[in-house]
Amino acid sequence: MAGQQVLVSDTVGAGDSYMAGLIYGLLAPGAEGRGVTSLESLGPTASKAAAIAVRGPGVAAHGRGN
């Protein structure tokens, strides 16, 4: 599966966002009716979530100077 191509600003939270995308796909309304039998089928959603997360500054950037 190919990932999303984005300009990366910060990778903080990329893995968490990917996992959130997987979990969303498993729990989303209608997931049972889709017959999700493979985590691979949820990859595009998870990849998109991670791609969005890395485009801006991560958590560490927001806590600086406090």
Rank of each mutant, 00 (worst) to 15 (best):
A60G: 08
A14V: 02
N66H: 12
P57M: 08
G30R: 10
Y18Q: 02
A53G: 06
G56T: 14
L7A: 13
A49T: 03
T37V: 03
D16P: 04
Q5G: 03
S17C: 12
G15Y: 09
V36N: 04
R34K: 15
A14N: 05
P44S: 08
Y18N: 07
R34H: 09
P57V: 00
S41W: 02
L27C: 12
H62Y: 12
A14S: 08
S38W: 02
G30V: 09
G35C: 04
V12Y: 11
S38I: 03
G56S: 13
S38T: 14
G3H: 03
R34S: 01
G13A: 04
N66A: 14
L22Y: 05
Y18A: 01
Q4D: 08
D16S: 04
A28H: 14
G13D: 04
H62Q: 13
Y24C: 01
L39D: 04
A28Y: 09
G58L: 07
H62E: 12
S47Q: 14
G33P: 03
P29W: 06
S17L: 04
S17E: 08
V36L: 12
G56K: 11
G3N: 14
D10F: 07
V36M: 01
G30W: 12
G43N: 05
G43Q: 15
V8I: 15
P57I: 00
K48Y: 07
K48S: 11
G58Y: 13
A14P: 04
A2I: 05
M19P: 00
G58E: 13
G33A: 14
M1R: 14
D10S: 12
L22M: 09
V59F: 15
P29Y: 10
I52R: 03
G30Q: 10
A60C: 14
R64H: 13
G43W: 10
P29T: 03
E32Y: 03
G56E: 14
A51S: 15
A20C: 11
I52W: 08
A51L: 14
L26I: 00
G30S: 11
L42P: 00
G25F: 09
S17Y: 08
V36T: 10
A51W: 11
P57L: 09
G35A: 01
S41A: 14
Y24V: 09
R34G: 00
G65T: 05
E40G: 12
D10N: 13
D16W: 07
D16M: 08
V6L: 06
A60K: 10
A51P: 13
G43A: 11
